Amino acid sequence: MRFLIPLIFGLGGFAVLVSLGLWQVQRLSWKEAILADIETRIAAAPVAVPATPEPEDDRLLPVTVGAEVTGDPIRVLASAKGFGPGYRLIYPVRTDSGRALMIDFGLIPVEAPLPRMTGRAMDVTGNLHWPDEVDGFTPEPDLGADIWFARDVPAMAAALGVDPVLIIARASDPTVVEVTPVPVTTDSIPNSHLGYAIQWFGLAFVWLGMTVFLLWRIRRRTV
């Protein structure tokens, strides 16, 4: 009996921790499949912008459009890996078919002047997106300084007087040399399941080691 109770708790705890590790391995496979599907969707052949794009059905849809910049941009404070802090430039454009929408051309450094874009015509390839960046902690836009703190598609569209359709530019012809494109990727989607699995398996073997040590101590006391 002296050995039985610690052994039951030891093996039971080990089994629970291992099962949690295996669950995270299953979650890892599930998340990798989702990411692969998203990457395939992002990189698919671009199509024309749908007549009535839907935020759920058309999110990340690759599109190509001929457009002319029609006004000054909205500046959204942001940053990117390898770039640092800057402003995303969201420009109002009119497409060759006459539609008014928005294009996120990418980042400029915070100290850089706004490029002269109004009147430029170009062909743009990118992805439709409705970023989920607004929460209860997001400040309201500083309209006096012309700085926004998140890409709120409906609010930006209302401010620019265009349809609530945003294209994240991947490339343009001619190239907008003043702006660094920040195309949509899966990099911002968290996938920590491998790390969690390693932690659970590590805890399982620590638990097993402690159980063996406890049984050894009990045995020594009974000798």
Rank of each mutant, 00 (worst) to 15 (best):
L128I: 02
L128Y: 01
L128W: 02
H129P: 01
W130C: 07
W130I: 01
W130Q: 06
P131Y: 03
P131Q: 03
P131D: 01
D132T: 13
D132I: 12
E133I: 04
E133P: 01
E133F: 01
V134S: 00
V134T: 10
D135I: 07
D135S: 11
G136N: 11
F137L: 14
T138Q: 03
T138V: 06
T138Y: 00
E140W: 04
P141H: 01
D142F: 05
G144M: 12
G144L: 13
A145R: 13
D146A: 14
D146K: 11
D146L: 07
I147K: 09
I147T: 11
I147E: 11
W148I: 04
F149G: 00
A150P: 05
A150R: 03
R151H: 03
R151P: 02
R151Y: 05
R151D: 01
D152C: 09
D152E: 12
D152P: 08
P154T: 12
M156A: 14
A157R: 00
A157D: 04
A158N: 13
A158Y: 06
A158R: 13
L160E: 03
G161C: 09
V162Q: 01
V162K: 02
D163Q: 14
D163N: 11
P164H: 09
P164G: 13
P164Y: 07
I167F: 08
I167P: 02
I167Y: 03
R170S: 13
A171M: 10
S172N: 09
S172Y: 06
S172W: 06
D173L: 14
D173N: 15
P174M: 06
P174Y: 05
P174I: 09
T175Q: 15
V176I: 15
V177R: 13
V177N: 13
V177Y: 11
E178G: 05
V179G: 05
T180F: 11
P181Q: 07
P183N: 08
T185V: 11
T185Q: 08
S188M: 10
N191L: 06
S192N: 14
S192F: 11
S192A: 12
L194Y: 10
Y196H: 07
A197R: 06
